[in-house]
Amino acid sequence: MTEARLPRGSVFLVEDEVMIRMMVADMLEELGFSVAAEAGEINEAIRLAQSTHFDFAILDVNVNGKVISPVAEVIKARNRPFIFATGYGSSGLPEEYRDRPALQKPFQLETLAKIIDAALKSATV
């Protein structure tokens, strides 16, 4: 019998590549998080960022060729932590958010866990 884990929190996930979004959602669930909402397009992400309850977000920097900044602004205004996911390295982050945690794609489960823990710890300080 497997031991039941208490949920660690809920995540808002923005990623335009469906297969990557599914993979990250699986990784989050493996780490004990639930996915509160998912978006693959900027306008949908803005709407969900405004209306969905979540503990933190993971944001793809480039969503269908559009920069994620409008979504990050909504989440920042709600005082929720967020992590960027990018294939471009930290130089690919929007300039005003270069101090935020970033995952370099592709990433492993252990790296995701470490970035989430760091982001959540810094948000509670």
Rank of each mutant, 00 (worst) to 15 (best):
G65R: 07
N43R: 13
N62F: 08
L93I: 07
M23G: 14
Q104E: 11
H53P: 10
E110N: 03
S91Y: 00
Y97L: 07
A49M: 08
L6P: 13
T124K: 15
G87N: 05
S91E: 15
D99L: 09
E73V: 00
I115H: 02
L59C: 07
I83V: 03
I83R: 05
I58Y: 03
S122R: 11
L6T: 13
A25E: 14
L28S: 07
A102N: 09
I68V: 05
E38R: 08
F82C: 00
E3T: 13
E29P: 08
S69G: 08
D99C: 07
G32V: 01
P106A: 05
D99N: 14
R98G: 04
Y97Q: 05
E15V: 04
L112I: 06
A77D: 11
A57M: 07
E96G: 07
T2N: 12
A72V: 10
E110W: 05
T2G: 09
A39Q: 10
A72F: 04
A118G: 07
L120V: 09
E110T: 01
E44C: 04
L112C: 04
F56R: 06
I42G: 10
Y88P: 05
Y97R: 10
R8N: 07
D117Q: 13
E73R: 06
Q50F: 05
N64W: 08
K105G: 05
E17C: 09
L6E: 14
E95A: 14
A102F: 08
S91L: 12
L109K: 15
V18K: 15
R47H: 14
F54K: 06
I58L: 06
E44W: 07
V71L: 06
L109S: 09
P70Y: 03
A25S: 15
F84H: 03
F33G: 00
L31N: 09
I42S: 10
D99T: 13
V14K: 03
L28E: 01
D26Y: 05
V24K: 03
A102K: 02
A49Y: 00
E3C: 00
P106S: 04
A36E: 00
V11A: 07
M19F: 14
E44I: 09
A113W: 06
M1H: 07
I20G: 07
E17M: 09
R100L: 02
P101C: 02
A57P: 02
S90D: 14
I42R: 04
V61A: 08
K105Y: 08
S91K: 13
I68S: 09
R100F: 13
I20Q: 03
E17F: 08
G65H: 13
N43A: 14
T124E: 15
L31V: 02
E17V: 03
A119N: 03
V35I: 04
D117E: 15
A36K: 02
E44D: 15
P7H: 03
V14D: 02
M23N: 15
K105D: 11
